[in-house]
Amino acid sequence: MFHYTIRRLIFTIPTLLFISFVIFFILDTAPNDPTGNLPLTIPPEVRVKIRASLGLDQPMFIRYLLWCQQFFINEPLNMIEQWFDITIGDGTRLRVTSWSTRSPVVDLVVERLPQTLWVVGMSYVVGILIAIPIGVISAYKQYSWFDQLGTFFSMLGFSVPTFFTGLLMIVIFSVHLRWFPSIYDTTHKVTDWSSFVFQVKQMIMPVMVLAFFNAAQLSRFMRASMLDNLQQDYVRTARAKGLKERVVVLTHVLRNSLIPVVTVIALGVPQVFGGAIITEQIFKVNGLGQLLIIGIQGADIPLVQTLTFIFAVLIVLFNLIADIIYGLLDPRIRYD
């Protein structure tokens, strides 16, 4: 397993480089333009100059190499400088700079990370915590009223998109009941009890909307996988050996059923960092998802390239983690 992991990690580097090039190529080919959202009062000749000042008159390959240099060399150096408070070279390196804000993309990401982790991450944790018990109980008591209800709600959760559930919650809880704010305050800092209560209040709606959606999907996979395993021979054997039902279900069946669930969770974790575009938009959370969508709408290539690439790194990494967990859950799985 160790050798496998090392081999996979080494192979990751060319993979990611290739992915970064493909992403750059797509972003560059896409027909949206950084001047597209400017008022029409800015005449075409000025737009040409704006594009030139952004470096868009350079060939694509040169711009890609420039990004590589900025991202793989300048940004890490800069980070080392900040961490250890030292200066390497003359300290004036060009960092990856967003076209719309003219500020380093990495700083923007760092600024956005807290609210994304709080809201999207929390919703994921809540989703998992709801989904696994629901999936297990639903499968164990297949076709009971609990199972039917669980099925109904998970289908509802998956087929009704978040733009709708989010809006519905705002209309009910913000407009009519006035319980929760409809606009998330990203500058809010938790310092005491009352500010903590406020933080919980403003998180509750986006977290619930997303958790509902995530749990719906996850609980279905959990249930299906549990059902498969409950019918396996080893379950009968274990019961025949006189093991307690609790032990059979929670240790043997659950463990063997987790493979698809681990896959789905591993696929979902990078998405936490990618933010939740629609939910962030509805509740004005302005996390990474909102940053990405603004970047895409404004054809902000350095921003979108960097965000998407970080996202790609996480995807590759978490898929590797999932593969390792498979081996732990089921020792028969060997990659060597």
Binding site: T15, I23, I26, P31, L267, I296, A312
Partner: peptide, 28 residues
């Protein structure tokens, strides 16, 4: 086993592609 690496790296690639710009390219 031989196909696992290439196919899964391709899957990683597709997972990583930025959907919206990709759609704009396809449409164009």
């Amino acid at each position: 086993k031989k196909l696992d690496g290439p196919l899964m790296r391709m899957t990683d690639l597709f997972l990583a592609l930025p959907l919206l710009p990709l759609l704009l390219v396809i449409i164009m």
